[in-house]
Nucleic acid binder design. Sequence first.
DNA 1: ACTAAATAGTGCGATATCGAACCATATGGA
DNA 2: TCCATATGGTTCGATATCGCACTATTTAGT
Lengths: 152, 152
Amino acid sequence: MPDRTLETFFGFFNEIGIIEQLSRALMEARLPDGFLISHFSVLNHLIRVKDGQTPLVLARAFQVPKTTMTHTLAGLEKAGLVEMRPNPGDKRSKCVWITPHGRAFRDQAIAGLVPDVQRLSGRIDAQRLAKLVPALAEVRKVLDSDRDGRAG
Amino acid sequence: MPDRTLETFFGFFNEIGIIEQLSRALMEARLPDGFLISHFSVLNHLIRVKDGQTPLVLARAFQVPKTTMTHTLAGLEKAGLVEMRPNPGDKRSKCVWITPHGRAFRDQAIAGLVPDVQRLSGRIDAQRLAKLVPALAEVRKVLDSDRDGRAG
DNA sequence: ACTAAATAGTGCGATATCGAACCATATGGA
DNA sequence: TCCATATGGTTCGATATCGCACTATTTAGT
């Protein structure tokens, strides 16, 4: 391994970490009090992919421990944004359905971000950002499969 | 704002978020039990930049609330990795110094990551990664100054 | 010099994340 | 069928993050 490789990886992940932190703070500042990205992400996923999935499937999709997903879903359910129903095919399991209130919440959250994105798009060229995404997606895929390899 | 801009920003930050999560898990798996990236990052900063800085300066450098930094530093101090001394120029304040033990800890942490980086560098070209870093740094700077503008 | 406002750090409470242990149910092999 | 093992989900305990409020000190305005 060349000398600079370690530094390159460190520098890359460092930038990633900072951007993640700043973007999360930006988003969470727009969400109603007490709601976090974790909540929004689940709602968004239930709409963009599909709802009716089990908590475990969601936990895997977001790469979080199942206990974390239990907790996140409990918060969403308490707020009436999702509904938990028994899984007809497995009595141990449940299915997560988004409610109309949940859909509205997600749509409003996105609407609330529009001014931020507008402001930022004046200083960050969206085209340039778009060009980064495929490379980032590749890195993400490698990390993901690497994790599978390590974890079993 | 063109139609796709919102989706582009969302997609970008989504990839960032996933990579951050995966890389954090990867790193933390190599740190001794009970230590997190937050601990490592502070030690690394104290060495790479300089030590003797105040907790508040560190909190700003890492974009975390000062209470979070207090907590992180308390953990590091308890483990003997940093030392807190009074700030000679301000009786309200303190200076954070890394200890020899702290330096050793940081060096060992980096050494422990070498196998991971070696394995990953077989699947992620470091040169290509390096080319992404300047663009990411620009995004980071914009987000950072945007935050300053919003927060004062 | 005196006082009001700002600043550095901490204590506390609320919530998030996550691993270990646990219960209920499902699955696979004898 | 019966039992060992695996799986889905929750509970519990430990620690992290972070906002609010507080103390001590500093700074700025008069």
